[in-house]
């Protein structure tokens, strides 16, 4: 069985995890056009090489990020999402 290290729960069998897709930085929702936004939401690069991906430890519903080499399937590192998402983002044009 493959093993993956959850930043919260430690090393676990891969069967305890769910893949959540590629991570890409979000474009500014106030200045992006529809095409860019659609690419961000729906399109994936499917790159061969080092990628950053969302993974979820399903037993604890804990989402985190993993850097993985898609050629060798080697996990380089896993880290908490708070490393990137460290401030609140308001989507409303004029947040109340």
């Amino acid at each position: 069985m493959k093993l993956l290290t959850c930043p919260l729960n430690g090393q676990r069998n891969i069967s305890e995890f769910t893949y959540g897709g590629e991570y890409h930085p979000m474009p500014d929702p106030h200045s992006t056009d529809a095409r860019q936004w659609a690419e961000y939401v729906f399109f994936h690069d499917n790159a061969a090489g080092l990628v950053t991906e969302w993974w979820c430890h399903t037993a604890s519903s804990f989402w985190f990020l993993a850097e993985r080499n898609t050629i060798s399937d080697q996990i380089i590192r896993t880290f908490e999402a708070s490393e990137i998402f460290n401030q609140r983002i308001d989507f409303a044009e004029n947040p109340q």
């Binding site: 729960n9 676990r12 069998n13 069967s15 305890e16 430890h57 399903t58 037993a59 604890s60 804990f62």
Partner: peptide, 12 residues
Amino acid sequence: IAQTSVAKINAV
């Protein structure tokens, strides 16, 4: 605490 799978059931 271990949040893990027990008999394929998510468990704390």
